[in-house]
Design a protein around this nucleic acid. Structure first.
Lengths: 227, 227
DNA sequence: TGATGGAATTATGAATTCATAATACCTTTT
DNA sequence: AAAAGGTATTATGAATTCATAATTCCATCA
C-alpha cells in the first residue's frame, strides 16, 4: 500500500520546468517569462514563483531581482568544476559502499555488469547507458548515505543538459568498459580506496567525451545585475 | 565601487530564519507558524513562504504538505553522513588547491597558521576557532571551484547547530593543531593527495568532539505524512 | 543623426483575498 | 466515562489584486 501523494502545485510545476530545461525546450540563458509559463501550465503566478525559487536553489535557474528568471548558463569551467565534485562524491560512494555492502548486493551489481557487457558487445548503446546508470546508482545506494545521494543527484541534474557525444569513439567506450571491469574486481575485494579511485578516474574519462552543447566559454556569460 | 544590492524580501527573510535556526531560537523539530513569523518580521505570507521553499531546498527546513513547515530534525546518522561528505569535499579542496595555489596565497595561510598557534598556546579558544575557520576557507577558496564552495557551505550550514563540546579536551585540541601542522607541510610541498588525506582525517577527528545537542537517534524521528 | 529625457507599457515584488485541508472542540451515543 | 461523529476554527494552498521597478518607445534637442 503506497502512501497518499500530497502533491503541491509548486512541486509539480518545478518538475515540469526541470523537464523543459533537461529536454532543451528551455534553452540555457533563455529568459523565463512568468506570464507565459503560467499560461502553459494553467496555474497562477504564486506556485510558479515558488517553483522558480526551488529551482534557483538547485542551481538550474538564475533569479535576477526585479528582472525575472532565466535558465542557468553553464560555462565550461562550471561543467568541469561540477565533474570534479561528482568525481569526489562517486569516490566517496565507492569507499562507503565497500564498508557495508553485502554479498547479495554485490551479486546484483555483478549481474548488471554482465548485462552491460552484453550490450557493449552488441553495440546497443542506449541499453548500455541504461544499465551503466543502474550500476552507479546501485553503488550510490549501497553507500547508504542519504545526504550524499541527494547532493549527487542535484549535481547530476545540473549537467544533464550536457549530452554525451553521439559518436562516442570506440576507444572511449572500451576504456569505460575497462574501468567497469576494474570496479567489479575492487568491489568484490571490498577494496574501498581502490574502488573510490577507479570511480573518480572513470568520471574524468567521462568528462572527456561530453559534447559541450549549450555550454559557453567562461568569459561569455551574459552580464546581469547582481542581487 | 560596490554594486547596488537588490535585496528581495524573501532573501532577507530566509537569512533571518537561517539565523534563528542556527542560534537555536527555532529548535529542531519545532513547528514553524507562518502567521507568527509574518508578524515577527512584519511581512506578508508570500515572501515568507518563498523563503521557506528555499530553506527546504537547503535542507534546513522540512515542508509537510498542508501541514506547514518545521525545522529539520538532525539524526545522529545524518550528522555522520554529512561529515563524511564534508570530509570528501575538504579533501577535494585540498587536492585542487595544491594544483594552482600561488606562493602569496600559501604565505597568507602560513601567517594565519602562526596566528592560530599563538591562540592555541594562549588557550584563546574563541580566537583559535575564528582563525581556524579562516584557514579552511582560504584553502577552499584556493581550490577555485565555485560549485564545491557552494555545496560545502550548504552542508556546513546544516550542521552548524551541532556545537563543539564546551570542554573540548586538551588531547583533541592537540590533535587538531597537529593536523594543521601537517597540512602546512603538505601545502608548502603542494602535495595535493596528502593534503586531501589530512583534511579528510581532520574532519573525522572533528566529528568526535561535537556534542550532539538537538540531535536525535535515528529511530526517534517524528513521523510525518510524506508529500 | 544620435543622444537624452520622459511618458506609457510591461513584468516583477508583495499583500490580500478566497478555497480547502487539517485540527480542535463539542455533542451525542453507548 | 469513553468513543465516535460532526461542526467550528484555524492554517495552509493558490489566485487575485495592488505597488513598484524595469523596459520600451517616442519626442525633443544638441
Amino acid at each position: 500500500m503506497s502512501k497518499i501523494q500530497h502533491r503541491n502545485l509548486y512541486r509539480e510545476v518545478a518538475d515540469r520546468i526541470r523537464e523543459l530545461i533537461e529536454h532543451g525546450d528551455l534553452a540555457p540563458g533563455e529568459r523565463i517569462s512568468e506570464k507565459q509559463l503560467c499560461e502553459t501550465f494553467g496555474v497562477s503566478r504564486t506556485p510558479l514563483r515558488e517553483a522558480l525559487k526551488v529551482l534557483a536553489s538547485e542551481g538550474l535557474v538564475e533569479l535576477l531581482p526585479n528582472r525575472g528568471a532565466r535558465v542557468m548558463q553553464l560555462t565550461v569551467k562550471m561543467v568541469k568544476d561540477t565533474y570534479d565534485l561528482m568525481g569526489a562524491l562517486e569516490g566517496l560512494s565507492g569507499e562507503l559502499a565497500c564498508q557495508q555492502i553485502n554479498d547479495g548486493q554485490i551479486a546484483a551489481i555483478c549481474k548488471l555488469h554482465d548485462q552491460m557487457l552484453e550490450h557493449y558487445h552488441n553495440r546497443e548503446m542506449q541499453a548500455y547507458f541504461a544499465v551503466n546508470r543502474q550500476i552507479h546508482e546501485s553503488i550510490l545506494a549501497a553507500a547508504n548515505n542519504q545526504v550524499l545521494e541527494e547532493m549527487y543527484n542535484n549535481l547530476s541534474y545540473r549537467v544533464k543538459r550536457v549530452r554525451y557525444s553521439k559518436k562516442m569513439t570506440d576507444a572511449f567506450w572500451r576504456q569505460a568498459v575497462n574501468d567497469h571491469e576494474m570496479m567489479i574486481v575492487a568491489l568484490k575485494a571490498r577494496d574501498g580506496k581502490r574502488l573510490g579511485q577507479i570511480l573518480r578516474d572513470h568520471l574524468c574519462h567521462k568528462l572527456e567525451v561530453v559534447t559541450l552543447a549549450g555550454v559557453i566559454e567562461d568569459d561569455e556569460l551574459i552580464n546581469a545585475v547582481n542581487g
